[in-house]
Structures are given as structure tokens and as C-alpha cells.
């Protein structure tokens, strides 16, 4: 297939599946809280709706940085789609993409001059201290499989069985990372309702939601590829639905944590994960 067509197709799939999964997550959360909840396509509809809504550019914003930072979020997740489903490239590159995602989160908050965004920005820096160690799960995968290239990791799993069974603590760490990126999660301090959704408040909302759908799809895709491996498209879809439902259960039943508690919980989990995995690898 033509490379560009392949990329466009994968980006479109990532956007549509990601949006519907996020809508599904809201639906499951609503049912747990005994509400009827919005339809599953609500997130997708919202994305389209926000493309038609008016956006004002505040006088206090740092132009043109204020617009470019939202484009940056889209750029890195399109790059992630190319590294992931299109070329099955290096896992280390995902680490870089995730690091830049944290930077975008931080600066989308501070670029508008809004006090809520500013708080979100400071919280993004705090949470980076906890989420980057969680991403260090990559090193454990490297120590186990001897490679960082996704296609080789899939081959390794075809020969030795799923990594989910051999390094479960690493999978747990990655799951906590996915959980922290989901909406309404106990760790989503940067998007907390106490700071009016933080950095998301005043940017081009439809555009941000587009990138977030892709990022949700990609995080689940990496989890399934790295820890289960060698799935067909239906397998991916089932896996994503299961993880999303599981995340929805956790989010519906937990309150959003105070920033300090959130960071300390993540750091503790990261510490347990790294030390535990290294001990498991040695013995």
C-alpha cells in the first residue's frame, strides 16, 4: 500500500477508535454511578462540535506559541502513530514522545496566562517527576528481551510467551501510566475539575480532543503490543475495550487525589515496579 495512504488510514483509525473508547469509558463510568450516561459516540460528537464553536484568543496569551503548542500535541501523536502501527520502530522513541507530551501539557497550561492553566502547569511538572520513572518500564523490557525495537519484541514474545506473564510488575507500571492519562482518573491532577480542567480550558478544544483520542489509542496499542504481542486487529480491539472498561471501573470508584498524594502514589508504584522487576529478573 502507498505509505501516505497507510499513515492516513492509521491516523484515522486511531482517532475514531480512540474517541469511541473514550466515549465507552464515560458510558461505563455512568452505569457504575447508576446514571444512564451519554451515548458511546458522545466524545466523537463533542470533538466535531468543538470544531464549529468559537474560540477567543486571550490578550494575555503568548502568541503564536499559544496556537502552536496545540499543534505540537497533534504532531507528536501523529509521529507516535508512524513509529507504532506503521513502522513498528523503536520503543525508546515512544519514551521521547511521551516526554514531549508532558512538556506540551506543561506549556499548554502556562501559555495562556490563565491562573488555572498556571496551576495545571506547575502540577504537570510535579507529575512528570512521577510519570517519567513509570515510563522507565522500558528499561525492564529491554533487560528482558534485549531489544527496543517493537517488531523484535513481538517476535520475542512469539517464541517465549507474553511478557505480561514474565514481567507482570512492569505491566502494572505501564497500566498505572495509562490510568494516569485517562480522563477522570485519580491521578489526572493536571486536568482536575478543581482547576477548571487545567490546561484544557481555553485552547482549541476540538483539536485537543482529536489528539487526546489518538494518544489514548496509542497508549493502549503500545501496552497490548509490548506485553501481549502478535495480536490481529480484532484482538487489539477486544484488548482495548477490556482495558478501557477496567480503567473506567477504577475511575468511577475513586476520587481524584490531592496532587501530593497522586505523585507519591505514582512514585511508590514506580519504585515497587522497578525494584520488584529487577529482583524478578535476577532470580
Amino acid at each position: 500500500m502507498n505509505l501516505m495512504a497507510n499513515i492516513l488510514l492509521n491516523v484515522t483509525i486511531a482517532f475514531l477508535v480512540g474517541s469511541i473508547l473514550l466515549g465507552f469509558q464515560r458510558k461505563v463510568m455512568a452505569r457504575i454511578q447508576m446514571r444512564p450516561g451519554p451515548p458511546i459516540i458522545q466524545h466523537l460528537l463533542h470533538t466535531f462540535k468543538f470544531f464549529l464553536k468559537e474560540s477567543a484568543f486571550p490578550k494575555t496569551a503568548a502568541m503564536p506559541f499559544y496556537i502552536a503548542i496545540t499543534a505540537m500535541l497533534c504532531v507528536i501523536w501523529v509521529a507516535a502513530v508512524i513509529v507504532g502501527p506503521v513502522t513498528e520502530g523503536s520503543l525508546l522513541l515512544f519514551f521521547a514522545i511521551y516526554a514531549i507530551h508532558k512538556i506540551v501539557e506543561h506549556n499548554a497550561g502556562s501559555s495562556s496566562g490563565s491562573p488555572y492553566g498556571k496551576l495545571s502547569c506547575v502540577r504537570a511538572v510535579f507529575s512528570a517527576a512521577a510519570e517519567v520513572p513509570l515510563f522507565a518500564v522500558l528499561i525492564i523490557i529491554y533487560l528482558k528481551t534485549g531489544t527496543m525495537i517493537l517488531s523484535s519484541i513481538v517476535t520475542y514474545q512469539n517464541q517465549h510467551g507474553a511478557l505480561l506473564l514474565s514481567i507482570p510488575l512492569a505491566a502494572l507500571m505501564f497500566f498505572v501510566l495509562i490510568l494516569s492519562k485517562s480522563p477522570y482518573s485519580p491521578f489526572s491532577i493536571t486536568k482536575g475539575k478543581d482547576i477548571v480542567s487545567g490546561y484544557e480550558t481555553e485552547h482549541l478544544r476540538g483539536y485537543l480532543m482529536f489528539s487526546e483520542s489518538i494518544s489514548w489509542y496509542m497508549l493502549l496499542w503500545i501496552f497490548l503490543t509490548v506485553f501481549i504481542g502478535g495480536l490481529n486487529p480484532v484482538g487489539y480491539l477486544i484488548g482495548m475495550v477490556i482495558i478501557t472498561a477496567f480503567v473506567a471501573f477504577i475511575n468511577a470508584l475513586t476520587p481524584i487525589l490531592n496532587p501530593n498524594h497522586s505523585v507519591m502514589t505514582q512514585v511508590t508504584l514506580a519504585f515497587i515496579g522497578i525494584v520488584g522487576s529487577v529482583i524478578l529478573l535476577l532470580y
Binding site: 506559541f65 516526554a99 514531549i100 506549556n107 528499561i139
Partner: peptide, 26 residues
């Protein structure tokens, strides 16, 4: 340090430290 005004310059403080850490791991 990020509580000060002057957004785009603060970006580079955070950007440099995160990217350096990723490269250090490599």
C-alpha cells in the same frame, strides 16, 4: 521556578531536563 510569568521561556527548562534524561537512558 515555574510559577514565574514568561511562559515560552519556562518551556525550555522543562524540555531540556526531560529530553536530557531520555538521552541519558540511551
Amino acid at each position: 521556578m515555574f510559577r514565574t510569568p514568561g511562559s515560552p521561556f519556562l518551556l525550555i527548562i522543562h524540555l531540556s531536563s526531560l529530553l536530557i534524561i531520555v538521552r541519558t537512558i540511551e
